[in-house]
Design a protein around this nucleic acid. Sequence first.
DNA 1: ACTATTTCCTAAAACCATTTACTAAATTAT
DNA 2: ATAATTTAGTAAATGGTTTTAGGAAATAGT
Lengths: 334, 334
Amino acid sequence: MVRKVTINDLAQAAGTSVTTVSQILNGKGDRFSSDTRKRVLNLKVEMNYVPDFNARNLIMKSAQTIGVLVPNVGNPFFSELIKGIQAIARENQFIPIIFSSNHDAELEKYYIEKLVERSVSGLIIASSASTSEVIDEILKPNNIQYLLIDENTVETGDTVETDDYYGGQLAAQHLIDLGHQKIAMMISDDLTNNLRRRLEGFKDSCLKNKTEIFQIEAPMTKKGGYEAVADLVNLSGVTAIFTINDEMAVGVYRGLWERNLKIPEDFSLIGYDGIEWGEYISPKLTTIKQPIVEMGKKSAEVLLNRINNPKVKKQTVNLPVELVVRESTQRIRK
Amino acid sequence: MVRKVTINDLAQAAGTSVTTVSQILNGKGDRFSSDTRKRVLNLKVEMNYVPDFNARNLIMKSAQTIGVLVPNVGNPFFSELIKGIQAIARENQFIPIIFSSNHDAELEKYYIEKLVERSVSGLIIASSASTSEVIDEILKPNNIQYLLIDENTVETGDTVETDDYYGGQLAAQHLIDLGHQKIAMMISDDLTNNLRRRLEGFKDSCLKNKTEIFQIEAPMTKKGGYEAVADLVNLSGVTAIFTINDEMAVGVYRGLWERNLKIPEDFSLIGYDGIEWGEYISPKLTTIKQPIVEMGKKSAEVLLNRINNPKVKKQTVNLPVELVVRESTQRIRK
DNA sequence: ACTATTTCCTAAAACCATTTACTAAATTAT
DNA sequence: ATAATTTAGTAAATGGTTTTAGGAAATAGT
């Protein structure tokens, strides 16, 4: 078995002390001759020296780690989000530890405990199975920073969100502008706060324009959207559909297709999120686009800022959403 | 900020030595009087003592962690895989740290170093930007176990794979059985070994049946598939398409749709992977299904087994693939 | 020529938990 | 009564890194 190369080995090889090596490798090497510096730097590569994280953090008292909790890595919204987080984390020499809780509150709690054990400096939570309980019971006592995505109900802790109410309005207004007067909304029966706002925006706009709305409840998955079509076709006079997220819309495409109903001729359909898949499905999905990668980036930035600076007051970042008109909506024909 | 409670504080409070405390807390406390044991155990809870992860791992040299490297978390194949890994890791009190390398060899190396730093016990690599180099330079010197998914070229290290050659044959045979005689294959120009085998299986079957094949090269993404359609329509007489993965097929759907070409009437299309999306796109995608979650589970199992048991000889797990006939292929009409 | 300041470098302490190798006292065996 | 064993405990070494405090040699200042 090969022993790991330590800073000691490197110092020995370079004919210098461990202090010197440590300083040079940590960018505090201006006090050393460029000769020594070069020698150390070269040997580092040559000997493939990698500092031991545990030893380093034991003394530095920071794990250079943030935890990320999402409900489902398989959902493109969250995988995009992760990309953004990962990018910023990397820039700051942090690593994200990602967990997918599958909407299971118990699993969520278990993973959060695991993360705390590992002294992560902070947590990004984009999953809300049991948020406020977890915060009070685990995060606060252990003095762990946290940031919630799309959830601004907790008084402490930073937030990154988009204007869901406005997004909902945007979606409704688009359908109304196209002349639709009876619209079905497909939503989950178990809404997080941002989804509730999204829905309210949608409803309020419809109400103001005297547009009739029908509510269909189903899980926010492809399968959920697919099955909801069974309810949809029982409604009479509906000409447009709003699904609370894009993934659900994909299921609706399939459900309608099986019944030989056409998008957008028989039903205009608008989704929400702006995942890449929406551009490849036919007809292309009209949607409200969230800046998903940007949300991930911003989340990591704000959290890391708080970690370095625990005393700044609660930050709330609001990012813009936008209507992206593609092919799945059209003007109603009488 | 409150200083963290250390084992020393706990020992002092209990009027005993750190050795005693350590032993008791690690279940090796049968050598101590039940009196001492109780005192320590109670104080642990009372003082909210949590052993420092870094200190512990520094000396134990195991972080109860495995690293997972995938090219792209956004690709459903890999997010499914991650689900399987996560499940088994959890059962074994291990934590997976997941990185998405985006096919960037440098990024891949960077993340592997990060993982080594943290003394992960093992690595699951489902990304092949620079595998053999990384293994020789980083993994071996640092004595880190590793398992490759769909890559069985390295002499050491375990492997989990499916029978790609057979899968390729299956795909070809299906199209041939339906009477297709001119088939386009869409593949990446930069193939990993398993993809190469997949392709060979496909080609060999076609060759044996005197079926003509046309090769179109494009990235293995939705966009790649979409753009490849431009080349496809220049080919004459082609009636069927094989895409090397399902995601690419999704792009082909779009490309054909835009040209008003129908699946399966104008082109039969078969993909490879069996991702969930294939069941929601219309017509449903015929594909070669890999047991993706199972692959993840098996990978974690084999790697963890090796970690506990470094001397067992190289293990290679081969999982079955299956043809799933859905709606995107049909018998050719003369 | 003598002191003051850089320049370049190092020894040793600190971080916290685990483990090894022991000791002293109490109990049991002969 | 003495030797052997068991019980209950601890001191000290260990792991790999960063940081503090300082030292010797070279250069600059007067």
